[in-house]
Design a protein around this nucleic acid. Sequence first.
DNA 1: GTGAATATTTAAGCGCGATGAAATTTATCA
DNA 2: TGATAAATTTCATCGCGCTTAAATATTCAC
Lengths: 153, 153
Amino acid sequence: MFSTHELQNALKDWAEVFMARSMHEWVRYVRGTGLSMPQFSTLMRLYYRGQCGLSEITAELDVTAAAASQMVDRLVRDGYLARAEDPNDRRAKQITLTDHGRQLVADGIAVRNRWTESLAEHLDPAERAAVGQALRHLTEATRQLNEMRKNER
Amino acid sequence: MFSTHELQNALKDWAEVFMARSMHEWVRYVRGTGLSMPQFSTLMRLYYRGQCGLSEITAELDVTAAAASQMVDRLVRDGYLARAEDPNDRRAKQITLTDHGRQLVADGIAVRNRWTESLAEHLDPAERAAVGQALRHLTEATRQLNEMRKNER
DNA sequence: GTGAATATTTAAGCGCGATGAAATTTATCA
DNA sequence: TGATAAATTTCATCGCGCTTAAATATTCAC
């Protein structure tokens, strides 16, 4: 009754509607902070995965080291990031989030969560358990795929 | 057994992992096209909701009319959009996607679909029916919330 | 029909993202 | 040790997005 093909369609539709909404909201929030998308992406990377060298940011954004360095410059200037010397390799710098930068990301996540909360409340109570279970499976499957992809590279 | 709170958490976790993956992929695709985010967003708006006047684009991006006009200029120059006079109001212009522009968006959607397909295949077959049903509910609920929000404004 | 409102465009100017080229400092290794 | 490689920065330059201010064309209201 629910073929693989139908599941793919259901996922495709969900991804479309979810992306349209969450992306739009995210772009607006980021614009409101006064930061650019790559700047905010960098803050998020540091928030979720901790401090790193400039070279990781360069790779993440897929730009030249010069571009990344200048972008970090502005973020340091505006108080979102700090540079520190890497004790193991004095050529490299460790880029870290300041409290200010961490707060900005946390606020963005809070905005996103407000939306998902209203979505949860809007679901028919009879469906909540099934939907919750399904999301757990999807989240787990996505994590596994991300791991697989990481190992490929 | 699955409280509202647990559902909210499941949704929150899903949003986090989904956004991290799809956002990253989307940003990379858009960068690869040589277009900026607002440019590509505009192409997508036209793809999904059809032609519109410049004023709609202005509202969508939340910028001045001047900014939108100039952005459309570049998209017309590069062959993604066309301007036509609005027959009902000769002050206004109808902005439409060219075949070239439509193809670009279609390719981006195809990239996203490849990911959701691999995700569907990676799910335990025993869970597929339940997940499919749940996604249908979620998609419907999200569409309803979007409608409600549209009416509020 | 005349004046106000609307839709869009043009122009000047700023900051950011990005690049290539060159410089600096520190690590590696033969 | 001494050449080479690596991590980052600085500089000049360009295009884009955005704004404000001003211009143009058209519609609407009285």
